[in-house]
């Protein structure tokens, strides 16, 4: 018993100290900075102002934010459309091949996402392999301009983030009991009704988790936009990075970051509410 208390105290103190110093305090500083005025020498001047927040409403920035959100949402939907049937199909395969197939999904997740973005660039370049193939097959007469478009940024984001969608979906499909589907079809439901009223509600937690795991990074991955979108197709991440590293406007960068955090917090809260709703509904069903 002797060692228990000091050990516990030391561990709890260590982790709390770390979180307070490197998570809580820095975020507090960002909030404070967003209400100050920019200064060329000391980054910020201690002078209260809402100017940075007002500038967020500037059509130029508001436009970038909406574009970025649009690209992130499109990315999420594309990932869902690809990932949902994929996760379902893998989960219904024989148990001996599943580990290998899932390993092949996790592998890209562990590899450098910048490297994979670059790989995408190789494929999409004007004289890259996709265009060579299209020209060779006679599908197009002149190379398509694919790089430095919004589509290229979305393709890159989908490529990098797809595993984040597949893995939570696979987890829920693995728990989906085959007999429930059989009961449904025995009771005379056609495939679509079984999907709509049995499969979809039961896999909803995975859908929501996957969407969050794709959507949240998709607004911040500035290097994907840099490498594949050129200078014109920016993400919110690019705006924040430029303000901090190039324009040296901390208050504005901080305000943009807070807006991003608030948007993400709202999404997480929505996820929490809907996950609770799904849980409660399935608990009700179990009782009924």
């Amino acid at each position: 018993m002797k060692l228990r208390a000091p050990f516990r105290t030391a561990v709890v103190a260590l982790i709390w100290a770390w979180m307070l110093l490197f998570v809580f305090l820095p975020n507090l500083l960002v909030i404070v900075a967003s209400f100050l005025v920019r200064d060329d020498v000391h980054f910020v001047r201690p002078e209260a102002s809402l100017e940075s927040y007002a500038r967020l409403l500037d059509p130029v920035y508001a436009g970038v934010f909406l574009d970025s959100l649009g690209m992130a949402v499109t990315t999420t939907l594309v990932c869902l459309l690809i990932g949902y049937p994929f996760a379902y199909a893998v989960s219904r395969l024989p148990a001996r091949v599943k580990p290998l197939l899932i390993f092949l999904v996790i592998l890209p997740f562990w590899t450098n996402s910048l490297v994979r973005t670059y790989a995408m660039k190789l494929l999409l370049a004007t004289n890259g392999l996709t265009n060579q193939a299209l020209l060779g097959l006679g599908i197009v007469d002149a190379p398509l301009r694919m790089l430095y478009t919004e589509g290229a940024v979305i393709a890159g984001l989908v490529y990098v983030l797809l595993p984040f969608m597949i893995l939570p979906l696979y987890a829920v499909f693995e728990q989906l009991r085959e007999d429930l589907l059989e009961v449904s079809s025995d009771l005379g439901a056609e495939r679509w009704r079984t999907f709509r009223y049995v499969v979809l509600p039961l896999t909803m937690p995975g859908v929501l988790a996957g969407c969050l795991l794709v959507l949240i990074p998709a607004v911040g991955m500035f290097y994907v936009a840099d490498v594949l979108g050129g200078a014109r197709h920016l993400l919110i991440g690019n705006v924040i990075k430029n303000q901090f590293l190039d324009a040296r406007d901390w208050p504005f960068g901080a305000a943009a970051s807070i807006l991003l955090t608030l948007a993400m917090a709202l999404l997480l809260y929505a996820y929490y509410l809907s996950a609770r709703m799904v849980r409660r509904r399935s608990a009700d069903d179990a009782l009924a």
Binding site: P26, N27, L29, V219, F244
Partner: peptide, 26 residues
């Protein structure tokens, strides 16, 4: 503490990045 760890894991990297930059400079 659990909540804070979750927030760090879920928040976009860039948010963590700028907050630490501000801290280190300060």
């Amino acid at each position: 503490l659990n909540g804070m760890l979750f927030v760090v894991m879920m928040s976009p990297d860039i948010v963590l990045a700028i907050s630490l930059l501000v801290l280190f400079i300060l």
